[in-house]
Amino acid sequence: MRWLQLLTASLLPLTALAAKKSSGDRFNDFRAKSSSGPLTLDDPAYAQLTKAPRDYSVVVLLTAMGARFGCQLCQEFQPEWDLLARSWSRGDKKGESRLIYGTLDFEAGKNTFQSLMLQTAPVVLYFHPTVGPNAKADNQPERLDFTGGPQSAEQVHAWISRKLPADAPKPAVHRPINWIKIISVTTAVLGLITFVAVASPYVVPILQNRNLWAALSLLGVLLFTSGHMFNHIRKTPYVSGDGKGGINYFAGGFSNQFGLESQIVAAIYGVLSFATISLALKVPRIKDSRAQQFAVFLWSGVLLCMYSFLLSVFRMKNGGYQFWLPPF
């Protein structure tokens, strides 16, 4: 048995040599393949790229681009990722940073996803070199989750730069000039100016219409005072179920609301305001006395019912509130 051990021991440096040789080749091979943009990987290529003794770093995006996954984030991030990889390889032509970009789609790399036990996509993994001057003992890749929403190429660039050794070159992200956007914006602006010049005789009277502006400002006021901006910023759900198959129109809690809820409240405010306007401005202008009497009772009734309903809704939101009006 002893000679076997000796033999193994004597072989060890050889294997190391072989590994090192092939790994140097591996880096150049992969770099040659990835001259423009990230490498497109599959399971074997991924395993080959991230095999244990390596003297280069690897950063891999694990994504799910297939339409049936409906991964919005993946679709959004993909162009950023390609841009980052492209500008990196362009800025680092000699490969001094010893970094390889790769993309592994779920379709091509189901086994890898399973072995990593990934539940979500996209994920960016960063592999330290295991041999060479910047090696780290820990073979576990570092992981960038997209918990904070979509990331830009610059943010990921900053993340990768922190992982790389300080002296490695870190070519900045170079965004190509978006000619299409510039041209389309210019065309649109010119078109708009032309449109305004041509259509002004027809548009100006509409723009000067007082009723239009009144409607617009009232709409704005109602929208904002019923908490539309809250929905917009917090991205609240429109409605939610009550767990019994029905719908909850009103969210529980004082500083919480649904999209539909704020629309209902805006409608209540609108009706109340309209009733007030009618009572104040329209009713005194009705010439027929019986019609006027009817209008007064009608609008007063609407006002009372709506206000009472509003109070009851508010009592629902704020448990300690104690004021109420008759019907509700």
Binding site: L218, V221, T225, R234, S255, S262, I268, G270, T276, F314
Partner: peptide, 22 residues
């Protein structure tokens, strides 16, 4: 950001008189 109950809490009845005044 402000949810609607905060508006009603702070302004009460005036919140619906306000658009009428505008």
């Amino acid at each position: 950001p402000t949810a609607w109950p905060a508006f009603f809490f702070d302004l009460s009845m005036m919140i619906w008189l306000f658009p009428a005044g505008v």
